[in-house]
Design a protein around this nucleic acid. Structure first.
Lengths: 177, 177
DNA sequence: GACCCGTAATTAGGCGCCATACTATATGCC
DNA sequence: GGCATATAGTATGGCGCCTAATTACGGGTC
């Protein structure tokens, strides 16, 4: 069994047929992407019975220890998505009874989002399940192997645009590395 | 700079605060997912100037050496998405002049999709660019390191549902592993 | 108090993906 | 021939994400 995705097979075939020197890198890249997709799919499948998506789960988690609630704005910042996206996720979560929106009495532009009892218990339950599941994915690797994997991933990440942009920001604000 | 995504930071913080034993695995998992997302984002950014998405690029590639064209059905199979998804992608690609739909004279249910000249040249150009770019991501790793990374990824993949399902299918059809 | 500007949240519209339901055509069986 | 069934493609509606536009409110300035 291959861990590659269907869409990548044709690409890889062609690269290998042409005997291009990048073939090894490309297969490796597709293995990495395929594994990440498989993990995302598993995650979605685990959350689906609760009528939750990964994005919604993150909101539940962000709210689980905030007795005073959070505003959509804060949720957007901490989840790393736009406020517009938060609006849509909150709509679904409110519809399904996981949380409620309340008016902020001090600043009438604001909304305060708080979990319901259902939301709170679901968040706790899922948090435990979720961490155990992820732990089980990497259960086969010992501490040293995990360290090696982390280092290799980090070195690849250095070549992405995200890293390049971070480095550029670094040189303009602080010192060049 | 961290390669973790915003949404993962809060989760990871909480796990570490609770000193759960899975903390190392979870950080590693999030590094893996973050790298994959960074690669996907870079890919999307590279294709955006052409008004293409990754899904559309795959279709262009699948068609680039098919002088006789392919049907939406075949495209769906080879790309690993549903026919409905193909319809949407084709709509966009046809609108932007990369390809055209023709009626099949032999089977009037069928449609034959063929690249235009523009589609053909774009596909060729992008295929070269794309493979070089992926090669550059992994340029920092030598053959042995790539091998190690591949093996580690594969061992993690063994613990996903995809692998479990593949194994189950195996035992029903052929011999247990 | 009227004005401008910034901020909070939402709406509107787009994209890519999905599952489901529908239409048209082909094909096998009686 | 006539009908059931399968297949090809599409339409519809949902989700998560985005950007841009809109609406409501707050706070400063004159």
């Amino acid at each position: 069994m291959t861990m590659l995705e269907q869409k990548h097979l044709a690409l890889l075939d062609e690269v290998q047929r042409r005997k291009q020197p990048e073939a090894g890198s490309i297969q490796l890249c597709f293995e990495l992407l395929g594994l990440a997709s498989a993990i995302d799919r598993d995650c979605a499948a685990r959350l689906a019975p609760y009528r939750l998506s990964e994005g919604k789960f993150v909101l539940l988690f962000l709210l689980h220890d905030q007795a005073g609630g959070l505003s959509p704005h804060e949720l957007a910042e901490r989840a790393g998505v736009t406020r517009a996206t938060i609006t849509g996720l909150l709509d679904g979560l409110e519809r399904d009874g996981f949380l409620a929106r309340h008016d902020d009495r001090e600043d009438r532009r604001k909304v305060v989002v708080r979990l319901t009892a259902k939301g709170l218990s679901t968040a706790g339950e899922l948090f435990r399940e979720h961490t155990q599941w992820i732990g089980s994915l990497f259960a086969g690797l010992d501490a040293e192997e995990r360290q090696v994997l982390s280092q290799l991933l980090r070195r690849v990440w250095q070549n992405t645009d995200a890293a390049a942009n971070a480095a550029a920001a670094d040189t303009t604000v602080g010192r060049p590395s």
